[in-house]
Design a protein around this nucleic acid. Structure first.
Lengths: 188, 188
DNA sequence: GGCCGGAGTCAACATTGTTGACCGAACTTC
DNA sequence: GAAGTTCGGTCAACAATGTTGACTCCGGCC
């Protein structure tokens, strides 16, 4: 049983090394040989365990959101709560998101990003909404939420990055709130 | 003068072939040899003319927005007009945007994307706004605008993609309008 | 004891971006 | 007009990449 034990542990080493490298350097800039070196094993073994670099990427790059905070909060505070969650999504989560966005030139990674967008943003929001256009509002709010991550992490808008966090939460939160639970149209 | 003539034309061939391929297949999935083949020349010549694949990419992938429509329209219609522009930005422009987003794992391409975001969205909007928080509002509107492109093209939200265009323009337009020229805060 | 299956190692493959050596033609200089 | 220089073009090669196959080794099973 020593062999399977070794197998499991090296497989785990490869997994965590790959996760770390993919998160910090992205898909195209991390090589199989780097992963193997950091896991203390051979490049061929990396492929043997995970079939291909792309499958290893898909196996390691999962992005989930703890959506309980979105279910707890009263509906009229949902926007602000979502903004908070997005801005707290720092560190490793932003690395995964960026890796998915950058890698989504690859068809399978693009599929993964689409699913992630759906599960991470659209579904939790739609669950809280009612009315005939609930789906549309959830998707628009998801687009706005993704826009914040895009501006901060993909485009790297320095003006937003340097903003005071609580002010950004407040402003972007009310903006999201207006999508989720629209006010009456303007009179003027 | 035959040589320089040939040089200019092959350089032009390389340029247009590269632009087409980068737009349709992205940065990582187009090879220098593909570009050379489509331009009817040699891979070495591609590098000789443009120093590297990355510089060739930066030379070809420019994204500009005709911002006159944003300057003409009255301020209270700016949001809707911007939404129209974004959704009309189809075909080749979306290819360039996607190529920049996908390629922005590369530092120089990331710089280009940041500049593009600034020139394409932030600056034209800020020029129309006044008040102490004009810059913040412009950047938030730019984030929301980018969010639409992100949701449609990067994440590929099928629900939004299948929506009626005029309804999407109307809804996302009023949303943008609320960022650009905010209404008074909710009373409740 | 002999066999098997699976983990590990090593060398190789095709493909990638990139470089250097060479070739030929045109323009410059005497 | 001849020699030389410059510049576009071609070819072969390089290192690095993902991936594969052959081979070794070792623990468990008949």
């Amino acid at each position: 049983m020593l062999q399977t034990g070794s197998s499991v542990s090296t497989r785990e080493s490869i997994h965590s090394a790959a996760a770390r490298l993919f998160r910090s350097r992205g898909y195209s800039r991390t090589t199989v040989r780097q992963i193997a070196a950091e896991a203390g094993t051979d490049p061929a073994l990396v492929i043997r365990h995970f079939k291909s670099k792309e499958l290893l990427f898909l196996e390691t790059m999962h992005l989930t959101l703890d959506d309980e905070p979105l279910l707890d909060v009263p509906l009229e505070r949902l926007g602000e709560r979502l903004a908070e969650l997005l801005l707290d999504l720092g560190g490793s989560a932003s690395g995964v998101f960026l890796a998915l966005v950058h890698g989504s030139n690859e068809p399978h990674i693009h599929d993964r990003l689409r699913d992630t967008h759906e599960h991470l943003f659209v579904e939790p929001l739609r669950r809280r909404l009612t009315g005939p256009d609930a789906d549309v509002r959830a998707r628009m709010a998801a687009a706005v939420a993704g826009g914040l991550l895009y501006a901060l992490w993909v485009a790297g808008d320095q003006g937003l990055l340097r903003m005071d966090r609580t002010e950004l939460v407040s402003r972007y939160g009310t903006l999201l709130q207006d999508v989720l639970t629209p006010r009456a149209p303007r009179t003027s």
